[in-house]
Design a protein around this nucleic acid. Sequence first.
DNA 1: AATTTACGGTACGTTTCGTACCCTATCGAG
DNA 2: CTCGATAGGGTACGAAACGTACCGTAAATT
Lengths: 213, 213
Amino acid sequence: MGYVRYPKRVSAAGESAAKPASRRRGAELESAILRAAVEELSESGYPGLTMDRVARRAGTNKNAIYRRWPNRAALGVAAYQRLATEKLRPPDTGALRDDALALLRRVNCDLSSPQAEILRGLLAGVGDEPELLARLHDAVADGGSGVWLTIVGRAVARGEVPPEALHPRVVTVALALLRNEYVTRGLTTVPDDVLVEIVDEVYLPLLRSRGPA
Amino acid sequence: MGYVRYPKRVSAAGESAAKPASRRRGAELESAILRAAVEELSESGYPGLTMDRVARRAGTNKNAIYRRWPNRAALGVAAYQRLATEKLRPPDTGALRDDALALLRRVNCDLSSPQAEILRGLLAGVGDEPELLARLHDAVADGGSGVWLTIVGRAVARGEVPPEALHPRVVTVALALLRNEYVTRGLTTVPDDVLVEIVDEVYLPLLRSRGPA
DNA sequence: AATTTACGGTACGTTTCGTACCCTATCGAG
DNA sequence: CTCGATAGGGTACGAAACGTACCGTAAATT
């Protein structure tokens, strides 16, 4: 079907931004694409993550992208994994309550409005592809679990909470609740009251409760 | 610009499904549109909620839709509100643990895979419109809060948990955790282990902990 | 040096949103 | 009962964006 004409066009000047003279290949090109995708994702969210725009930004074309990722959602997840992997070091204030609040606040700031929208977009875009969804889930979960284990571990060492508190699901409850607010409540940053409430009404009572009855 | 020709076409026979002879107006037509939207949403999820398809299914055209909702996301939220308003009556087994588990399981079955995907789709489609997001949030939140208050209220009456447990945020923790699993984990139903874990490791300890220190 | 592979560039087909435009049935006022 | 005004029906259209196909060419491989 249908290839009638093929006009041979000299590449228009100054159309693309950062493309070196030599032609990139393999890992180098892949990295450039991924970097462009992360930037687009950060600036314009998932709806802005257009294949054409990523290609233009990376100084390449959609061909090179589709050879690596089967569709837009896969590229989005890959980019998000990069974006979310910037680790945050656990605070160490000496009190579990302050540690937890500090962590929640940081997550609330760093990862808030843009990130939440990105995550929402991705969760939808992933749709019915379980593998992508799982990857996304891991990316999100890993972002938290370790850090929370650390601060609770310190609290256990201080005798603030019983050692039974060191349960993976228990430790990440605060993060899950915050994420729940994110995802459903929306773009705006979660108000600080809510964070305090999560910590004082749920998180601390829960951790303390897990000792010997 | 540009209306060149206008072919006068006799309406093709049998192209639309349920359109009565008389032309519907106002509330009646609106209801038909919404019903069609709910059906499309249930069958094909948010991606399948196409304006053209809804219009065809309702036996009307996009015009009538856009006169009522500004865009697809708004229609989707409206349809979801209808879909999610089917209430569930609280179980009453006589024990809080069983009530909570039963409720989680029912939510997990009834509202699981299709609903979760719809919700994910909507959350993304709503994007940057805070009002729609708020409406969605209400629709989701209302679905749970009351029921949970009921079963915990009964538990309080039985003396199972202290009255301080009747805190809105506390009471809905189990639902929030389950929803968190939904949203991130994906389509498949959340395994029962997880539900049990949520109840035994988090929910019950939390509620019991809220008594006098 | 020859061959194979991967990139660059571009054109397309398709779908879907949202808008514009005509024509007409129905409703309400006089 | 006649006659506008309003809302529906039908359709066409422009703009994006996805995903694919196809050429020509640079770079790696042999």
